[in-house]
Nucleic acid binder design. Structure first.
Lengths: 204, 204
DNA sequence: CAGAGAAATCTAGCACTGCTAGCGACAAGA
DNA sequence: TCTTGTCGCTAGCAGTGCTAGATTTCTCTG
């Protein structure tokens, strides 16, 4: 505290902070890579520490625990999903809803471990409480934007939740081998057809 | 082998088998109860063994490993779900689809740990391969029966998968606190409305 | 340039997990 | 009563997430 504002003191501290930030990111990336290569069961603190070439306690100087590492991976994954959805513009004649659905399902299919960390593992991200990470809001926002053109006079938020839930259900059940792969295309057609028919409002 | 068909030999063996079967069921029930009370993380072989008042190795004389116990719980849970869906007849004016959806979601809400074992945990039940437990087929069959009245000329199996996926997505996302509880009713209305409108087939 | 002080990192260990080898008690048949 | 074989238990292994305390490494001062 006393004499900390020296010339090279502050620049050294800068370097330290930069190195810390780099290592922080290295841990996240390594955890993600390891999970994608061998599944989350293979991501133990020892293996992770070995891969980043430090000892376990270093991990705990960056994250409160293993859960926090998974959470960090999940947040960055949400950012990736949001980016993917944003640039998933419909090709000729295709609805925006379909483009979003296909991008979402492809993400879940290609990066199952990442998807797991984001939406399956209990590791509850704040979500309802306090501060929801911006990345998650972005991803959900992209879904809202995709649903908006077809919502008609239906509640936009609720319809987006239905859309998201359906995609999530398809993604997770398909991942567990619970759905027939030969029905993939038909299934998606049926879902999109059902959601985008905005003819009249019924009570049933 | 040689002289095993004695009078009381066979009856004693019967008693033994009956006791074994009872203990087998006791293990499954205790595991389910413990999971429902404190979550699957609390179900360790030691705690489970303590609750059934035997030592851990006894568990392994009944099941190949912890996964097999969870699997057994899941299979019996599927039987329960099937039974629940079967007796979920629509009350006046209500569609059968809605009755099934409400029963399904209520099951997932009231027995989250059981639902987890059945459809969330990796613990892959045979499913595609070899012998799918009859309980699972029954449960899916009930869903098919609920979708049948509204499928029109749409593929029944694929539409049922869509229905199931949507329910599963809603159940799991709601369980994780990812959906707004105040939209519960509207969300279900939207889903049912979307799936049961069988006006015309569109390509989009 | 040497040494005090602080900061970062590692070693070693705890309590726990799923799982198993091998011993001891106990019951059934000779 | 003694043998035989089944049954369940005790004790232990390798691995988990996590942490206290020693040790090394670096920074700044005299």
């Amino acid at each position: 505290m006393s004499s900390s504002a020296r010339f090279c003191g502050v620049t050294i501290q800068n370097r330290r902070e930069r190195e810390r930030a780099e290592r922080h990111q290295l841990i996240i990336d390594t955890a993600r890579d390891l999970a994608e290569a061998e599944g989350w069961d293979a991501v133990t603190t020892r293996r992770l520490a070995e891969k980043v070439e430090y000892s376990q306690p270093v991990l705990y100087s960056h994250f409160k625990g293993k859960d926090a590492i998974v959470r960090a991976v999940a947040v960055q994954g949400s950012g990736e999903l949001a980016r993917l959805l944003r640039k998933a513009r419909p090709s000729r004649g295709e609805s925006r809803l379909r483009a979003a659905a296909e991008a979402y399902l492809e993400f879940a299919r290609e990066r199952p471990a990442l998807y797991d960390a984001m939406f399956v593992q209990q590791v509850d991200l704040p979500w309802g409480t306090s501060e929801v990470p911006q990345e998650l809001l972005d991803a959900f926002g992209e879904l809202v934007a995709a649903v908006e053109p077809v919502h008609g006079d239906r509640d936009l938020d609720a319809l987006t939740e239905v859309f998201w839930s359906s995609l999530h259900g398809i993604a997770t059940l398909a991942q567990g081998g619970r759905l027939r792969p030969d029905l993939d295309a038909i299934r998606l057609d049926l879902l999109l057809g059902a959601l985008s028919l905005t003819q009249d409002e019924d009570r049933l």
